[in-house]
């Protein structure tokens, strides 16, 4: 178990049946996301979606060492879900993964379905669910940072459990499932901390300047408070 543990699965890690199964899951997921995203995308959010995709693309290039011989990179699902919502977010991450697989040969083409399922669909959905549940803590700056961190951390770990499921269904039985699970989940707890820090930094900085751009904070705007000047 070496650099193969990084999140992008390469070709040949899963058997054909499992690859096809998760390709179907990914296609259905993307179709649903595309149908629902239509309402979310307008003049203001279209450039945001493009920028989130470009940002996730750029940060996925940053491979940082987690353990000797294991490198991880950011997944970006929680970041996308918090900034542009789960539907557009899932589309953004999927587009990033497809372009990376085709243009930069990062992640196998046959494993694309499984990669999209883990990172774009499971990751974004879980990140958004966590952030929504914790939404009432987002009123203060440290609270928002904590929510973004938690969402990103849980997103990473659950996405890695998606890989464990796929590996259990169609992986090489030569590796013990218990060992693989422990390695994968352990590594992704560490990646999750890095992911959480970057997500929190980004979300807090954006919320400070342009809270209107953060999908999670929508509808939380306080009404204009007109205070009368006190006599005296």
């Amino acid at each position: 178990m070496t650099a193969d543990v990084a999140m992008h699965m390469s070709d040949g890690l899963l058997n054909t049946t499992t690859s096809l199964l998760f390709a179907a899951v990914a296609v259905i997921g993307i179709a649903v996301a595309a149908a629902r995203a239509r309402d979310d995308l307008d003049d203001r959010t279209a450039p945001m979606a493009g920028l989130v995709a470009a940002f996730v693309f750029a940060t996925q290039m940053l491979n940082f060492p987690v353990l000797p011989g294991v490198s991880g990179h950011l997944l970006g699902g929680a970041l996308a879900a918090i900034l542009v919502g789960p539907w557009v977010g899932a589309l953004c991450v999927s587009i990033v993964l497809v372009v990376q697989a085709l243009v930069f040969a990062d992640g196998g083409v046959t494993a694309l379905g499984a990669n999209v399922t883990n990172m774009a669909i499971i990751g974004t959905a879980v990140g958004f669910a966590v952030a929504t549940v914790l939404k009432r803590f987002t009123r203060t700056k440290p609270g928002l940072a904590a929510v973004a961190f938690t969402a990103a951390f849980v997103n990473t770990v659950v996405a890695s459990l998606g890989f464990v499921l796929e590996f259990a269904l169609g992986g090489d039985p030569a590796f013990g499932l218990g060992g693989v699970t422990a390695t994968i989940v352990g590594v992704h707890c560490l990646i999750g901390i890095g992911e959480g820090v970057i997500t929190a930094l980004t979300v807090v900085a954006i919320a400070a300047v342009r809270p209107d751009l953060v999908h999670l904070l929508r509808g939380a705007r306080r009404p204009l408070d007109v205070r009368e000047e006190s006599p005296a």
Partner: peptide, 13 residues
């Protein structure tokens, strides 16, 4: 929508 996001992504890089 996919075209919009993908082309904006490539421009924004």
């Amino acid at each position: 929508m996919v075209i919009t996001i993908a082309t904006l992504m490539l421009r924004y890089l």
